[in-house]
Write a protein that binds this DNA or RNA. Structure first.
Length: 284
DNA sequence: GAGCCTCGAGATCT
DNA sequence: CTCGAGGCTC
């Protein structure tokens, strides 16, 4: 890709101009120190909005099924949605009027939006799209700050005190909560009954570490668990999940239509488990 | 029934 | 990232 561009250029002498304004909304862009790129920081820029909504609905965030790229773009372009909080005020009829959407899809989508309200605080935090806060950091942060109110009130040094979190992330979170638009967003989402407090279920607070020290890889289609559910289950019991087979893999959980991972595991003589056997390991 | 959209899975690289 | 399957609209 880069090579092609160079070849197309008559001489390699044309300097690449760093954009000073957002190509989509025309607002000035900002370059953070130490970064090689500029970013649009206009919170109502359509491009930023689309990105943040796509992130909010994504698998590891609020997991709103049926809300794909096309739907998000339509909602933003028609100005039906100006922030993620607006998603919770959409009606079935509004959705059914979108291109390529019928009553049935609209109904399913409304259900998926409703369902997202029960997603845990860690996913909500990840969904907010704070710079440097990915799903793993969000998980770590919510283990120490079990509600937004506590996190919003925390000083940089409080956040930085968490093992595995440095100044950069701590400052990023701290700054995010000082922005007024973000504060009102949180208020709206609270009223819409999103989860901002970690519910300590009796099961998770006192769970055994049965799989501690073991590394798993999942392949194929399992009879009842989805891939992510299987991963979550393993992690819940302190096991590690990897995406590829290596000498360090302890078990391969095998489902229907397993591919090259099974072949490789056989070659390395790695123990195999069925979904049923995995469940037995954690339930025994 | 064709085409559109979303989603899961494997492969591959970093 | 790319492919293919499945569900839904039109």
């Amino acid at each position: 890709m880069v090579r092609v561009l160079k070849e197309l250029r008559p001489e390699n002498t044309i300097p690449f101009e760093m954009p000073t304004h957002c190509p989509v909304c025309g607002q000035p862009v900002v370059r953070e120190k130490g970064e090689a790129v500029t970013r649009c920081v206009n919170i109502s820029c359509p491009a930023i909005l689309k990105g943040s909504i796509e992130h909010w609905v994504s698998r590891n965030a609020l997991d709103i099924r049926g809300m794909g790229e096309k739907v998000v773009h339509q909602l933003v372009d028609k100005e039906l949605v100006n922030s993620v909080a607006d998603l919770y005020e959409l009606t079935e009829d509004t959705l059914a009027n979108l291109e390529r959407m019928g009553q049935k899809s609209a109904q399913k989508l409304i259900e998926a939006i409703e369902k997202s309200k029960s997603k845990p605080w860690s996913r909500v935090l990840y969904g907010l799209g704070i710079r440097h806060v990915g799903s793993s950091i969000a998980q770590t942060v919510t283990e120490k700050f079990d509600s937004v109110d506590k996190l919003a009130a925390a000083k940089v040094t409080d956040i930085e005190a968490i093992y595995g979190i440095g100044v950069e992330i701590a400052e990023s979170i701290y700054k995010w909560f000082r922005i007024e638009a973000n504060q009102t967003l949180i208020e709206r989402l609270k009223n819409q009954k999103l989860q901002f407090i970690e519910i300590q279920s009796a099961a998770s607070s006192n769970i055994s570490k049965k799989l501690e020290g073991k590394t798993f890889v999942v392949t194929g289609t399992l009879p009842s668990l989805s891939r992510d559910e299987a991963k979550e289950l393993i992690q819940k019991f302190a096991g590690k999940v990897s995406n590829s087979i290596s000498k360090n893999t302890d078990y391969l959980v095998v489902g229907e239509n397993a591919g090259s991972k099974l072949t490789k595991a056989e070659k390395l003589g790695i123990a195999q488990l069925s979904e049923e056997q995995l469940l037995e390991m954690v339930n025994s």
